[in-house]
Design a protein around this nucleic acid. Structure first.
Lengths: 345, 345
DNA sequence: TTGTATGCGTTATCAT
DNA sequence: ATGATAACGCATACAA
């Protein structure tokens, strides 16, 4: 591993000249610059990251902390990769923490200056990592919305808004009876914040609009019975005309299979709207319209905030950045079947 | 951020005493040790990672490099997390690279000494990252089995062996006609190495054993038609008595749905064996026996090799560590239906 | 048992 | 336009 001294020697100049050629922070004659760059290439010189940091006081590394690792989270790698991409675009690398002893890990990498900032994933309503953000001594941003966020910034989709938008959209299509399909993830306590944010807001908005909301039972994955679900909520005369899905794509897929076999076409017989999910990278048996989570958007905003805090010394503590939910039409929504028959409901 | 000087001042000792108290590399009187540790706690002192590294020449960071990010890979986060866990157990942190410009990224972090070693994920048969491992100047281990692995170590499940074991197991149960279910991932060129390793070995072994292997068409996810698959390969008189699945769990799930609806019970009518998949964290509609990929095992071995190379200066270039496939019985295998009727085939 | 001094590889501040 | 050198925070060889 050649160092700056070797380059200087090879180019016949001093170390400071080499440094300045590389940083461009003062004017250098073309002749010396060429000699230096030539030596750099010949020796394959790359500055040592630690030594560089000792002066600049920035490691150009941000830490990313997933939640407890036992939480099933199929979109986790999307958040990892998007964070890494955005970080790299800003000249940063990403350090991946494990999720066990989350606070300890964050404290260690933050206080040892291994990382310049922290991104928190899988943030729960009562999140210890967020609550203790003040101790990190480094800027911290949550992807999610913890109750106690005095010392960190929060970036998330506006799930309360999503609930209202979902209710509006279905009501506008004449749906008056809706069933909410939820899956096992909800069984773990404390429930993941955003799922409940959406649920509560959706139910409130739906009731405001005189809609009836049924909720599927919460079961273990393996015990989920799509036939029972369809029989109970969709077949009866007063069954739902629309499904709002919050469950795992696979659970939804199973339901779609039963609907298909039973001749209950989507969207003619029943409309389906999936909320807070990420279906586009997932092989669904049928296109399902969706108000998705948006890892790319959230990670991008999180990195903007974080880099602003690190490099411009912005104080981002307590900042909240909720983004308006997007809607992707994949053709699984239509007017409610009664409304279709009876006219403009 | 308190430094070692602050601690020394607060404890009324010299910096070297503080350093030695913390490292335990020479004996210290209890009295001073207590004073120092007290000061350390009071000031919340954590040594600076970069300064420490300047002496030790180890950053205690390993880089993990996923393949091209557009490759769908639902188990990616399992590899990330397992690597991070094993690394942390050895006192290392994990730096997550992005997958675009893979070689550039690796060169940068390796040559700048940001990372002490490299783990390659999503390794393809012709993998540029593995082929150029010599340039990294740091030990490198692949999870996967590239053709050119002169300059890195390889850790993987022995997929060739898995193919033989799968053929044996089915043949022992009297299955003579088997259909191989594969999914869209295979469409991208070059095909992911391990999928083909298994396929080729399975087909060869099956033919050795006088079995007939059919292969499902390769289609896009959204175009996969489970009904057509079942009609074509399972319903005919000379249809398959067993399915060997290499496809995405969701694709398999769809097939299981069709089988269930058609009254073709698993395993009474048709046996199912899933190979090279990771079903246990996945909500299948029915338990499926499996010879799975094993992220925890591979990551653990990869880290052992890597840390040995980093810390004991073992030369691991060219080493290949293939682990014997495991079998998980979830009750989806039984004797072939003809064999059941006709006796000991 | 403890303290002093040096060096790790850079960058920035002087000086030339 | 270029060179010499101090300083970053720590670990260790050496001195006491």
């Amino acid at each position: 591993m050649a160092g700056i001294k070797d380059v200087a020697k090879a180019a016949g100049v001093s170390v400071s000249t080499v440094s300045y050629v590389l940083s461009g922070k003062r004017s250098i004659s073309n002749k010396t610059a060429d000699r230096v760059l030539d030596a750099v290439n010949r020796l394959n010189y790359i500055p040592d990251a630690s030594a560089r940091k000792m002066r600049g006081h920035l490691s150009h590394v941000i830490a990313i902390a997933p939640g407890r690792r036992e939480v099933r989270h199929s979109s986790l790698s999307a958040y990892f990769m998007q964070t890494a991409l955005r970080a790299k675009a800003g000249g940063y690398d990403v350090l991946l923490l494990t999720g066990e002893d989350p606070v300890d890990d964050i404290l260690r990498v933050a206080q040892s200056n291994l990382a310049d900032g922290v991104v928190l994933l899988d943030v729960e309503e009562n999140d210890l990592r967020a609550a203790r953000a003040a101790e990190y001594g480094k800027p911290c941003v949550c992807i999610g919305f913890p109750k106690d966020h005095d010392d960190c910034a929060c970036v998330d989709v506006d799930f309360a808004c999503m609930g209202r938008l979902a209710a509006d959209r279905l009501r506008d299509l004449g749906h008056e009876r809706v069933v909410l399909l939820r899956s096992v993830e909800h069984l773990s306590e404390p429930m993941s914040g955003y799922l409940n944010l959406f649920r509560d807001s959706f139910i409130a908005a739906a009731e405001d609009r005189q809609m009836v909301v049924m909720e599927s039972e919460l079961t273990e994955y393996r015990n989920f019975d799509a036939n029972a679900f369809v029989s109970k909520y969709l077949i009866p005369k007063n069954g739902a005309t629309a499904i709002v899905n919050q469950a795992d794509p696979s659970v939804l897929n199973t339901v779609l299979g039963v609907l298909s076999v039973s001749g209950m076409d989507v969207p003619q017989y029943v409309s389906v709207l999936s909320c807070g999910t990420l279906l586009d990278s997932y092989p669904m048996s049928k296109g399902i319209s969706e108000m998705p989570i948006t890892p790319a958007v959230q990670c991008s905003r999180a990195m903007s905030l974080l880099l602003g805090a690190i490099e411009e010394h912005h104080d981002i503590r307590g900042e909240v950045d909720l983004s308006v939910p997007t809607f992707i039409d994949r053709g699984s929504l239509s007017r409610a079947r009664e409304a279709q028959k009876g006219g403009c409901g």
